[in-house]
Simulated assay, not measured.
Amino acid sequence: VDFHGRVSTAMSRRLLPLLEPLHPMFVEEPVLPEHSSHLRSLVESTSVPLATGERLYSRWDFREVLASGIAVAQPDLSHAGGISEVRRIAAMAETYDVAMAPHCPLGPLALAASLQIAFAVPNFLIQEQSMGIHYNQQNDLLDYVMDPAPFRFDNGYAIAGARPGLGVEIDEKAVRRAAETGHRWRNPVWRRTDGSFTEW
């Protein structure tokens, strides 16, 4: 369940016990990163595992949240320093008994890099990915690779390939075609029932 930081600490404290009977794998971003100091009190108020990290950008950003008692760290390799830095975050998370679920709603190179973490760290839990998801309707990440085989999942599991590097070959012609059109995606505008703006 992804709260995406859209609720206050007090509201998270109220909602989390209501989710306990449903046994979610975890609740993601129960508070915004700027309220991470409240995570410990939330961890202590519920049996639901808590996850955070897609908006944290280095091991120093993760230091306090790991100590708060979260269950799952979710660094995004595209924002948190790539494979090397996320491997360090994973090692640090392991010392706190925190699992890894790399955040990755991006393209094939970001997913391929995230999968390298999945194959290499002992505290890996699950990999977020955006293949076939609603906001990729005209631009799926497989549109930009020569061979989608590295992104085939067998019974829910990714298979480690033997290709060099990240194991993917980008279709440069497809990238050039997309560049001709340009980037048109924008965050949706979310409004409350009273018409006031809220964060996506």
Rank of each mutant, 00 (worst) to 15 (best):
D147V: 03
Y135D: 10
G81Y: 06
D143Y: 03
T9D: 06
G107P: 05
A113D: 11
E180S: 15
F153G: 04
L66I: 05
D147G: 06
F124M: 09
Q74I: 09
D194P: 01
H4P: 11
A110Y: 03
F119N: 05
S84Q: 15
A91P: 03
H134Y: 12
I126S: 03
V121T: 07
R192A: 13
V72H: 00
A149Q: 13
W60M: 12
A112T: 10
S78C: 13
G156W: 01
E54R: 04
F26A: 05
T95N: 04
G69S: 02
G82V: 02
V27S: 02
P17Q: 14
A178N: 12
Y157D: 15
E20L: 12
P21Y: 15
L22N: 13
W190Q: 13
Y144I: 03
P105L: 10
P30L: 12
A91L: 09
L42K: 06
S37L: 14
G156S: 06
S130C: 13
V145L: 12
P122A: 06
A80F: 10
E85K: 04
V1G: 14
H134P: 07
S12P: 09
P24N: 08
E128C: 01
G82Q: 03
F62L: 01
S196V: 07
G132P: 02
R88H: 07
G182A: 01
E20A: 07
A174H: 07
A149D: 14
P148C: 08
F62T: 00
Q74S: 07
A101C: 10
Q116A: 09
D143Q: 14
S68W: 01
A91M: 07
E34T: 11
E94A: 15
L16M: 14
S37T: 11
Y96K: 05
V48D: 02
R191V: 14
R163D: 12
R88V: 14
P75R: 02
G156P: 04
D97I: 13
R87L: 11
A160N: 09
L39K: 00
T9S: 13
T46C: 08
G107D: 08
E128V: 05
G53T: 02
E29V: 04
A80L: 04
A99Q: 11
P17Y: 09
G53W: 01
W60E: 07
I70S: 02
W60N: 06
A113I: 12
G69R: 01
G107E: 03
G195R: 10
P150S: 07
S78F: 14
A158G: 08
E28P: 07
A179G: 09
L56W: 00
S47P: 00
I83Y: 14
M146V: 09
A80M: 09
P17V: 12
H35W: 14
W60D: 07
A101D: 11
S58Y: 04
G132C: 09
Q127I: 05
D154R: 14
V121F: 04
P75V: 08
N187I: 15
